[in-house]
Amino acid sequence: MNCEKAREQLPLYVYGELEFTPEEEMEQHFSECGECREALERERRMHAALEATAVSAPAALLSECRRELRSVIRAKAERRPWWRRWLPGEFHWMQPAAAAALLAVGFFSARLAPVKVGAETRNGEVTASRVRLIEPDRNGAVRIVLEETRQRDVFGRPDEDRVRRLLLRAAQEPADAGLRVESLDLLKAETTAREVREALKQALLEDPNPGVRMKALEALKPYAEQAEVRHALSQVLLKDESSGLRTQAIDLLIQHRTGDLVGVLQELMRHEENDYIRLRTQRVLQEMKASVETF
């Protein structure tokens, strides 16, 4: 390896893009050549300076983007004919025939089958009902037990107890991730209440939907110094499958470089696959004068 070749390869060396052998040759050359060592230091200084050019998108922008995207997609879906919404993507070619078939089935079943599940309007209030029991009696009459679900509007501010309790319930509604996101978004302003912080931590660690977990993480940001929240963030960093969430978690954790962070980051280096997170972890460990790997 000569100086000319070493200078040429310098950017790739610093970016860790060289194969094993050329990288070894470069290191051998640096140990022998003071000028190239100086050039290497200069390249590294440039890299450090270039860090300052990275800008992060404002957190609020991400929420705005998600909201807009969701509403545009929803609006598009609503503009589609109903039979297209029903049919799975792979069967779209047979949509017209399927729609006709479904119409025919609907027509005949309405004529032949008794209605068991339905919705009716009583005193202007929509009620969904389901037949739970049918009991014929000796006189030819029948007793029918209906299970009814009624909608009721509750108005109030999120800081009111009853509203907050309902929001906390909605934050755990298993069937609707959108509802969980909306409720966590509203609860974000109520994090002074311990029960809200607990619900957020639970959502961050256990919710199956990454969007909901992200919303919980955003809400917990002001508490990133607290031991319990740091523990939850460490769990996200080590175990969450979403690289977006892990990126957010590491950014928050490294703002306060406590001793226990080193162990978490070293553990992370053993299995993290995302290049960006690995690079960030490596840098922080170096800055904290800790070894990059555990031995």
């Binding site: 990275a54 800008v55 992060s56 998108a57 922008l61 991400l62 983007c65 998600r66 995207l69 969701r70 997609i73 879906a77 919404r85 049919l87 799975p88 993507g89 792979e90 991730a177 939907n209 990454p210 969007g211 992200m214 499958e241 979403s242 690289s243 977006g244 990126t247 957010q248 960006y276």
Partner: peptide, 26 residues
């Protein structure tokens, strides 16, 4: 998501959208 599952599509979006926004913004 290919079969029209909106929740699956949303999960895909949430898995990658931070990086997408960061790249675009930068």
């Amino acid at each position: 998501a290919q079969k029209g599952d909106d929740e699956a599509f949303e999960q895909l979006v949430y898995a990658y959208d931070q990086s997408v926004l960061r790249i675009a913004f930068n």
